[in-house]
Amino acid sequence: MQVAADKTGVEAYGALTGRRAARILVLAALLAASAVVSLAVGSSSAGLRDTLRTGLDGVIFWELRVPRVLMGLLVGSGLAVGGAVTQAVLKNPLASPFTLGVASGAGFGAALGIVLAGAIAKWAVAGGAFGFALVTALFILGVARMKSATPETLVLAGVAIMFLFSAGTSLLQFLGTEQQIQAIVFWSFGNLSRASWTDILIAAGMILPALPLLFLRGWDLNLLLAGDEMAASLGVNVDRLRLAALLLAALMTAGAICFTGVIGFIGLVGPHLARMMVGGDHRFLLPASALSGALLVLVSDCLGRTLFAPHMIPIGIVTAFLGVPFFFALLIRRKREFW
């Protein structure tokens, strides 16, 4: 009797993790398919088959489409994993680099970089974005550590910071030259089309190293959700984990948006979408978030390029227009509480 019972419980968990792994594979397959489609479609009529067959449009393919798709993969995974980690660290399903003002901080930093060093100075733009993302993340962390800080307090603080930094960005636009204003405004739309190979290398350097570091802390992030005291009693260095995870999330967010601009909503929707598919275990949730975030970005970008071709709609606009209704549909249709 006891042996039989043992089997059911353990087997059920095995089946659960198997289902999760299978869903991650499905996400990966969808992502691969959308990457191929992204390479094949565009405002230029050069299809993938044409490109591969003739090699005529090699320049368009290698200098425009491949970087665009790679940047989309990086940005989507960076924002979504950053969002999932922020939600865990602050124990707040509303948290994301956007709702906490980290993205606005990065936007202000990028604008400052554009004004001070010019839009060509990629390092200044990226550095500014990262610096201010970091400052904002640390500030939010400070607020979170205050004893009375509830999830509501954090989101309120984030909204306040968002207003502060958008005012700062407006001030920079007010003071800047016409060229600078144009660069800042264009940046704020969110756009993958300007991605160069250098941009990709820098963004990859900011996003990719953080992924395995966070993936390996899956258990500890799970424990954080159960409460600081419980996590600490199970051997987790809570303060260090929270600080490191939030810094990595800020780095990823900055890396994701410093060249492409504000691509809204992925940081919030990506993790929730992943959570609905694979549950709350961060060992599965983080990889699933990376995949679902990247998928959302690529699909949005494809639609933005083709819906009103030959006009391209910046991806920041498409993700919001598509992501919000999609997210509401999921929220309304869901059968269980996911958080």
């Binding site: 059920a12 258990w219 424990l223 959700l225 419980m230 199970l234 549950g279 709350g280």
Partner: peptide, 29 residues
């Protein structure tokens, strides 16, 4: 093992997974 007075009311995981958290000191991944 320590059981604090306040148990979380919400955890995005199953009951089995919540219990499995107690194995953290023995687990890597």
């Amino acid at each position: 093992a320590f059981v604090p007075q306040h148990v979380p009311t919400r955890l995005p995981m199953t009951v089995f997974e919540a219990v499995l958290l107690g194995r953290r000191p023995y687990l890597s991944w």
